[in-house]
């Protein structure tokens, strides 16, 4: 299972805890949208490479 964690803002402690549990024993990747110019091409490639994407607040 490949899981992609996407962050729209800096993750808080709750999000970090949930991500830790969701990523356990899985092939995990991440992407931050919380930058001036996100590379959307890379994000879309990561989404299609993953089985599941979670996009946090």
């Amino acid at each position: 299972m490949k899981i992609l964690q996407v962050y729209r803002s800096e993750p808080n402690d709750n999000v970090k805890t949930l991500v830790g549990i969701l990523n356990r024993d899985r092939d995990a990747d991440e992407f931050s949208l919380n930058v001036e110019s996100p590379d959307y091409d890379t994000l879309v490639a990561k989404i299609f490479a993953a089985d599941k994407t979670v996009c946090w607040w």
């Binding site: 729209r8 949208l33 996100p38 959307y40 091409d41 994000l43 879309v44």
Partner: peptide, 8 residues
């Protein structure tokens, strides 16, 4: 982000 992702 909506536009960026849709375009990509």
């Amino acid at each position: 982000h909506v536009i960026g992702i849709a375009d990509a």
